[in-house]
């Protein structure tokens, strides 16, 4: 009886092990796309949000089909991107985010301007560098460093300017927000209501602040004694209403 069980077990192992022998007959993708989304006006990368509401790279594998299903991957929050698992193929590449779209259409859907890039990736382990020059809706720049107040709140100063003169993207500013976080991954997706209030503007109220030095202070009393990062987000009512951001900055707790 015991012997029979051993035979059975041995048989099972043989069957299970043999089923492992079929390897995927297609080599894993190994080509690399790196690059950045750059503000055409300043040369800085365009700050964005991590996750689904920030800049993403769009690849259309045109060598597979004239009308392929798009493949997207997300940019990092500093505006750079990197993907190490790209198949060799011909692609049409572009980026989507809080800036004037690279592929613009008029109100009837006719393409009026197309700054997407066609790239051909061959072989294995090849590195392709992509540089997209875009016009962000808004630029958010710090004015000086954040200041620790006596009551352990922090006051920041910054300036907002338009990043484009395109007449289709001159909508009013709807939000200017200060975000406070204990990591540099600071933005609307992980807004912490304890330390700042979001500010919405109606009509031209927000737009009239363009070019001025704006001052904001954290709320909710003393900040906790830990690393703290500040970031400003602002947006206009265009496209998917994504935010343009300042760089994240940190201040030492005194």
């Amino acid at each position: 009886m015991k012997k029979r069980l051993y035979y059975l077990a041995f048989g099972l192992v043989a069957i299970v092990a043999s089923s492992c022998s079929k390897l995927d007959n297609y080599p894993a993708p190994s080509n690399i796309i790196t690059g950045e989304t750059v503000d055409a006006g300043t040369g800085n990368t365009v700050q964005t949000e991590i996750g689904g509401r920030g800049t993403r790279v769009k690849l259309l594998e045109t060598s597979y089909s004239a009308n392929p299903t798009p493949y997207y991957f997300q940019s990092m929050q500093d505006g750079t991107f990197n993907n190490t698992k790209i198949f060799a193929a011909t692609y049409n590449a572009s980026v989507e985010g809080p800036f004037v779209p690279l592929v613009q259409t008029d109100s009837t859907g006719k393409v009026t301007s197309d700054q997407s890039q066609n790239i051909t990736i061959k072989g294995t382990n090849t590195v392709t560098h992509l540089n997209f020059k875009v016009e962000p809706f808004l630029r958010v720049d710090w004015v000086g460093q954040p200041v620790f107040n006596a009551d352990s709140t922090v006051t920041v100063q910054f300036k907002i300017t338009r990043g484009t003169t395109n007449p289709g993207y001159q909508q009013d500013i709807t939000n200017i927000n200060l975000y406070v976080s204990n990591t540099k991954y600071d933005g609307d997706n992980n807004y912490d209501p304890r330390y700042s209030n979001l500010v919405s503007y109606s009509g031209t109220d927000g737009t009239s602040l363009i070019g001025q030095t704006i001052t904001m202070t954290t709320t909710g009393g003393a900040l906790p004694q830990q690393d703290v990062y500040f970031r400003i987000g602002a947006r206009i009512n265009a496209g998917l209403d994504e935010y343009n951001y300042s760089t994240p900055v940190s201040v030492k707790y005194p």
Binding site: T108, G109, K110
Partner: peptide, 10 residues
């Protein structure tokens, strides 16, 4: 305010 067109301008 969100728009999307296909290749035939639908």
């Amino acid at each position: 305010t969100i728009t999307l067109f296909d290749g035939s301008q639908n």
